[in-house]
Amino acid sequence: MEETRPLIVFENVGKIYRTGSVVYEALHDVNLEIKEGELTVLLGPSGAGKSTLLNLLGGLDAATGGKIYFGGEELTAMDDKRLGRFRAKDVGIVFQFYNLVPTLTALENVDLMSDLGVEIMDPLKALEMVGLAERKDNFPSQLSGGQQQRVSIARAVAKMPRLLLCDEPTGALDTNTGREVLKIIQDQSRVYGKTVVMVTHNSLFAEIADKVVYVKNGTIEKIIINDEPKDAEEINW
């Protein structure tokens, strides 16, 4: 297999939260590399620090120590404006609770990014990709949880980002719907060559990843490379 250069690099990254006199160290001296086109799963129990890692990577939160690089650019040195541009152009984020704009239809949610002047694919095609073209005029409140999550994925991938971040994307879904969503996410890496980073506490999901990062107590416990990841349809939980 041809050696690809890392798209993302974490160098001695730390994150400390302060609430009054209470200090909580969420991440400590994290070093990690993620290659372009890889599907990486961040696995660990609740409170391990995996979501914090994802938030730092998406520019939603700022590290209190160390450096993070994306495509050679240092994210930790960017100001709010540049981080906003980075999120708009290079990153698509899928949340556990979808976070769709409730006053916009499915199609408008996907089309939202065009308002920022970002070049996006035809929003209807993005919805077709997740199998929801016929529900394009429905509001989020008129869709099931799984359908909302699929719209959320369509919105994230429509702008053709280099990086797709998914935070517990099946956390609020039943098994069958979750499996469908997992398949769509896996295809983003396998079919479309996107770099995908997915946070989960479900160890079964490790089987579909190219790389599994075990996070525990704010540090990386171990990293396992999966030579033969399974198809999402094969997973049962």
């Binding site: 998406g58 939603l60 404006k81 906003g84 541009r85 980075f86 999120r87 708009a88 152009k89 984020i93 976070n99 769709l100 704009v101 409730p102 006053t103 939202l112 990014m113 920022l116 970002v118 919105r155």
Partner: peptide, 12 residues
């Protein structure tokens, strides 16, 4: 929540 979503999506 909607405003936070827009911020996440890159709205300034």
């Amino acid at each position: 929540r909607e405003i936070a979503t827009l911020k996440v999506l890159g709205f300034t």
